[in-house]
Amino acid sequence: MKYAVGIDIGSTYAKVVVIDEDKNICFTLAQPTGWSSVDTAENVRLQLEEAGFGQDYPCVATGYGRISVPYAKKTITEITCHARGACQLFGEENLTVIDIGGQDTKIIAVKDGTVQDFLMNDKCSAGTGRFLEIMAKTLELSLGELCDLARQGGGTAISSMCTVFAESEVISLIGRGEARENIAFAVVESVVQKVASQAGKLQDVGGQVCLTGGLCECGYVREALERTLGKSVITSRHGRFAGALGAALSALKL
């Protein structure tokens, strides 16, 4: 049986997808990237071996650590990979892909299965997963708890775009005795508003909006995005693997 491997080394997690020649996902793996993407890549190789995937598979690497995978036959940027992966996951050729990752938020307009246009956040971390993580930590919550709590909150807003300033804003809200769910609401709202204004800059390709990346596992983020964009937003249980899947699909063609 022929199979292909896609590895997406992101800033927070390394994601791996193995597909067979019919493009079925037969193996996934996600592990924290840690400080060295070279070590992570080696660790992934060992785990693939353990799972029964030998040496000579075609492999494409993506993500910011893509150059650290010595056994990858090719590197492709995460933009192209996420677009390909999302098309496969959602069975659509026209999509607006919103990927909220650890250090980047990407919004990709896909038309007829190819990237039409894309935007990434500038160097600041506003509107990224990292922003939510830091705020969750300040509120002594896990990321999942923050999102669940946010659903019950309202009536408060955070206006700082800078993560450090926003943290001070959260701390002063805590000091003022604001309810935790209201602060959680404000934190998620801040990310969603930022993402929505970025999405507004891209040409509307008329297709379905989908959310990928680690944050698609937080149901409330998807709901809040739907509300703000005024459009339905879909996710998939394999959403965080969209980039790795796209890489694997490219590897299949090698």
Partner: peptide, 19 residues
Amino acid sequence: TADAGQIDTRIAAFIETLG
């Protein structure tokens, strides 16, 4: 040089979109 890595990615992705 703070954004050099991101700029590399963005530009490479843009070039990929050109086919």
